[in-house]
Design a protein around this nucleic acid. Structure first.
Length: 654
RNA sequence: GCUGCUGUAGCUCAGGGGUAGAGCACUCCAUUGGUAAUGGAGAGGCCGAGAGUUCAAAUCUCUCCAGCAGCACCA
């Protein structure tokens, strides 16, 4: 007999060799019907696994959160089976679960088309209907390799070779079809249900290495219930509608063109947002005791060599010879021995240069520099993505020079500043990650201990929750990442705080300590928004283009109903402008319906409609974006309200 | 950078070996109206770039370039 422990702590005795499904059957038929897997001592397992003495078990019902992973994983297997039924010469490779779904990579000469996806999906639904049971077999390494080799599944053979000694080689069968798999799986393909959809096809490298062969990847999404699938598909649609590249064009904010690919042409409307945001951050960092500086964009590669960027970051740097090229047939000729300059990809070395001017005392620390530094990075062409990934960007960058003892308080200060800014910008959910020492790193373990401890203590002392990502730190120090959740649930990494013990040393930064000895300061790299370009992209998508009043390029449109009210409309605009409101009049001889429609599409937050009545009574009829109705108000009151609303968030309530 | 797809008017897109098409936007004219499209007329294009096949190429072929999706990258 064996003892099995249930989630509520109760222990019951069962016969040796009892499986999870036999056990659940013995408890209740209806529970057994809903149970698709189990957790044994906290590990997801097949229901068909035999239990052992002292096993803590927990049943996973199909509707449990935990079952979602299984649904998606099983769905990936069915996808592979469907593809091999349709195209038997296709090799299967791996098919893991990812956020919101799964994918499977196939090796095949012809890539899949979108039409193929429909065919595959149909076949998948049939396979699921067949409801073949998942059964597990343990094979010897030799047998597994031989069977897959005979089938021509060379990638699987390679996977078997990669399985650690001592780990068993598991084969999961579903009817005739079988796959090498770690498991676990649900009872049968029927448990998957029909709430899934194949989303897209794409190329992907074998084992994620760009030196390897390119495979064909099929992405799918799967859910427990149809409603969840519908919601997810709706979210994707919503995300598409919010695409900042589309809105940027429609709202006339910015554009890109071939001659400057990856760099933004800011139009007047977009630049209003840009400036408002920059000025806001300038006020915030100034209040947090940062000194704003400005450093050169073009710097001799000598400095980049010294800083280490030349060795680590060269392939992302734009290099410019300091020479006037001679010309032949309009083609430039460079001598090849001119001095080389590089457009700065980062601001840090330049900030150290300013720190290094004059002699610094421990009394000067912490010393905080901020710069809206324009950086150039030669990003891979395939990486460019609207404002989100550009080749020329402006970071809201800053560097804090301090002592090791000050790391903790500086971290706390910075977190407070971030909280305040994210909150004011409308992002109230922030996930914090602490990336710790990587395998290859600079600096002694002692210093790393202190650095990691300072960061985690600073976070804990303020009651902030954070996750640790082991080994993901920069080679020069650990870092914090701040991820913002947007209005439709996507997260964006924006803020970062990175400790650096290497650069100050390399660039010979020092201060005179209390004992009049020279010391090397610690350097904290930090950014709040990340890049202004990218953050504006995030703001556009977060607000779906309907910017809050203080960021809206045009804040008010005054639209007269007939042309004999034009004078009054002009007067209203003048008064708005006198109060620093970005207002325009729309005097075209169009109907009011037309004007309202057009400015609503342009996402102007407020339309003041003025007709004969309003002109006589010195009022305006206000129509706010997103509302169907309107309200009539005295002009003075209306202006006051707009002025109040148009205050940047840090200046409201002052 | 890799794989796949795409590139025709400002935008969204149709067409497809032999005068280049639509809707919206734009310009002009009429219209003066009460909260999401008033009517009419007009203008607008090296069909991404280059080469090739052909009597003839926007259309077929090749090479580039850019965009899109994913991968890789992301100090």
């Amino acid at each position: 007999m064996i003892n099995v422990i249930f989630p509520d702590g109760a222990t019951r005795q069962y016969a040796n060799g009892i499986t999870g499904s036999e056990l659940v059957e013995s408890i209740s038929k209806s529970l057994a019907k809903k149970t698709v897997a189990m957790r044994v001592n906290g590990e997801l397992s097949d229901l068909s696994d035999e239990l052992f003495d002292g096993a803590k078990i927990e049943f996973i019902l199909r509707d449990d959160e935990a079952a979602l992973e299984l649904i998606r994983h099983d769905c990936a297997h069915v996808l592979a089976e469907a593809v091999q039924e349709l195209w038997p010469d296709t090799q299967v490779t791996i098919g893991p679960v990812i956020e919101n779904g799964f994918y499977y990579d196939f090796a095949r000469d012809e890539p899949f088309s979108m039409e193929d996806l429909d065919k595959i999906e149909k076949r998948m639904r049939q396979i699921i209907e067949r409801g073949a049971e998942f059964t597990k077999e343990i094979w010897s390494r030799e047998k597994a390799k031989q069977v897959f080799a005979t089938k021509g599944e060379h990638y699987k053979v390679e996977l078997i070779d990669a399985i650690a000694e001592g780990e068993s080689v598991k084969i999961y069968k579903q009817g005739q079809w079988f796959d090498l798999c770690r498991g676990p799986h649900m009872r049968s393909t029927k448990d998957i249900g029909q709430a899934f959809k194949l989303i897209k096809v794409a190329g992907a490298y074998w084992r994620g290495d760009s030196n390897n062969a390119m495979l064909s990847r099929i992405y799918g999404t799967a859910w427990a219930k149809q409603k969840q699938l519908d919601d997810y598909l709706h979210m994707l649609e919503e995300a598409e509608k919010r695409d900042h590249r589309k809105l940027g064009r429609e709202l006339d904010l910015f554009h890109f063109q071939e001659e400057a690919m990856g760099s933004v042409f800011w139009h007047p409307n977009g630049h209003i947002i840009y400036n408002a945001l920059e000025q806001y951050i300038r006020r915030k960092v100034s209040a947090a005791d940062y000194k704003e500086i400005k450093t050169p964009e073009l710097i001799d590669i000598k400095l980049w060599k010294k800083s280490g960027h030349w060795a680590k970051f060269r392939e992302n740097m734009f290099v410019v010879p300091d020479e006037v090229p001679s010309m032949e047939n309009d083609a430039p000729i460079l001598s090849g021995d001119a001095k080389l300059m590089a457009l700065k990809p980062m601001n840090c070395p330049a900030h150290v240069q300013i720190f290094n001017q004059g002699i610094k005392s421990y009394r000067d620390l912490p010393l905080r520099y901020a710069e809206f530094g324009c950086c150039h990075r030669n990003e891979a062409h395939g990486a460019l993505h609207g404002l989100m990934r550009v080749r020329q960007m402006t970071q809201d960058d800053g560097h804090i020079f301090c002592t090791a003892e000050q790391i903790k308080s500086e971290t706390e200060n910075f977190c407070d500043l971030l909280d305040s800014i994210y909150h004011e910008l409308g992002f109230d959910e922030v996930n914090i990650l602490l990336a710790t020492r990587p395998k290859v790193r600079a600096g002694s373990d002692e210093v790393w201990d202190l650095a990691e401890k300072s960061l985690s203590e600073a976070l804990s002392s303020t009651g902030r929750e954070f996750k640790i990502i082991e080994g993901e730190g920069a080679f020069y120090g650990p870092k914090l990442e701040f991820h913002l959740k947007d209005a439709i649930g996507r997260t964006w990494q924006c803020g970062t705080l990175q400790l650096d013990f290497v650069l100050p040393e390399r660039l010979e930064a020092s201060y005179i300590d209390k004992d009049s000895k020279r010391q090397t300061p610690v350097m904290l790299h930090r950014a709040i928004l990340g890049s202004l370009e990218r953050f504006i992209g995030i703001l556009i998508e977060n607000h779906a283009g309907r910017m809050p009043m203080w960021l809206a390029p045009t804040q008010v449109v005054v639209a007269p109903i007939t042309s004999d009210i034009d004078d009054y409309a002009i007067k209203v605009v003048e008064q708005l402008k006198a109060n620093n409101i970005r207002a325009i009049s729309d005097l075209r001889s169009e109907k009011i319906n037309y004007k309202v429609r057009e400015h609503s599409h342009a996402k102007v937050p407020a339309i003041f409609v003025v007709g004969k009545r309003e002109a006589e009574e010195n009022t305006v009829s206000i129509r706010r974006l997103g509302s169907q109705g309107q309200s009539v108000m005295a002009l003075k009151e209306a202006i006051n309200n707009i002025v109040k609303e148009a205050q940047p968030p840090d200046l409201k309530n002052l």
